[in-house]
Each structure stands twice: as C-alpha cells, then as structure tokens.
Amino acid sequence: MDKQCLDCGNSIKGRADKKFCDDHCRSNYNNRIKATENPQVKKINQILLKNWKILTALNPEGKTKLTKAKLIKEGYNFNYQTHNYQTKNGSNYVFCYDHGFLALENDWFLLVRNNEEG
C-alpha cells in the first residue's frame, strides 16, 4: 500500500513515517491548516507578540524606567497582557510573557523582566 502526500496526494517514497513528498507540500499543508484557525485568537496573539517585542526592546537590561507616553509612542496596547503579579506589599505588575511593568506615579513605569524558568 502506497502512502500518499497529505497535501498533493502523490505517492510518497522514503521513511515509513513520512507524510509529505517534499518541503513545499509540507509548508502548503501547514499554512492551509493555520489559515483556518480562529481569526480572533490570531489577532490577540499578534497584539501580545507586538507588546512583548516593545517591552523587550525598551528594557534590554531587565529593569528600566520610562514614561507611559514612550510606551504609547512605540505602539504598546495596554488592553492585552498575559498575566498580573501582585507583591506582598500590594504592588501590581502587569506582564506580557516574561516582560512586564509596574505603573508608578505621574505616568512613569518601571519595566522589569521575570527571569524565572517555567
């Protein structure tokens, strides 16, 4: 029994676990599957990634202070985050994956990086 490529349907030669005849078919198949994903999830993931990139670029040393205006200018979207962390003294850090911030007085922010694994 010949195995067939999941994308084009051509016969596959090679390893027993092979699913595609070449890289082009593998890419086409995966792109087609990804295109059918929930567009809302895709949009949110794009926003989260952009927020993370902004925080990462503005905070290369792992801790820095800057203004809210700087975050806004860079395109940071304050409506999207991955999680919050509240300290014992009540400070609320907002995170986008491993990068986050603490809102300070007068529209200043302390950017931080969580270096914990897992």
Rank of each mutant, 00 (worst) to 15 (best):
residue 95 F to Y: 15
residue 80 Y to S: 07
residue 35 A to C: 00
residue 53 K to H: 09
residue 109 F to C: 04
residue 113 R to K: 15
residue 97 Y to D: 01
residue 59 N to L: 05
residue 88 K to G: 13
residue 96 C to S: 09
residue 91 S to L: 11
residue 50 K to S: 08
residue 113 R to W: 04
residue 117 E to P: 05
residue 64 T to D: 00
residue 44 I to C: 03
residue 3 K to Q: 09
residue 10 N to M: 08
residue 16 A to H: 11
residue 41 V to P: 00
residue 90 G to L: 04
residue 27 S to K: 14
residue 117 E to K: 15
residue 49 L to K: 14
residue 26 R to W: 01
residue 10 N to T: 12
residue 76 Y to T: 10
residue 113 R to Y: 12
residue 69 A to C: 01
residue 63 K to G: 01
residue 18 K to Q: 14
residue 111 L to G: 02
residue 53 K to R: 14
residue 43 K to C: 00
residue 16 A to F: 06
residue 22 D to G: 14
residue 103 A to K: 15
residue 74 E to A: 15
residue 55 L to M: 03
residue 118 G to P: 00
residue 77 N to R: 11
residue 24 H to R: 14
residue 98 D to H: 12
residue 116 E to K: 15
residue 60 P to D: 05
residue 70 K to V: 12
residue 84 N to R: 07
residue 111 L to E: 03
residue 71 L to R: 08
residue 29 Y to Q: 05
residue 53 K to D: 07
residue 64 T to Q: 08
residue 86 Q to H: 01
residue 58 L to Y: 03
residue 98 D to Y: 03
residue 80 Y to H: 15
residue 51 N to C: 05
residue 18 K to I: 10
residue 91 S to K: 15
residue 70 K to N: 01
residue 47 I to D: 07
residue 61 E to G: 07
residue 24 H to F: 13
residue 63 K to E: 13
residue 5 C to F: 04
residue 23 D to Y: 03
residue 28 N to H: 13
residue 85 Y to V: 10
residue 109 F to L: 14
residue 101 F to Y: 15
residue 95 F to R: 06
residue 15 R to I: 00
residue 86 Q to S: 09
residue 89 N to P: 00
residue 23 D to R: 10
residue 88 K to H: 10
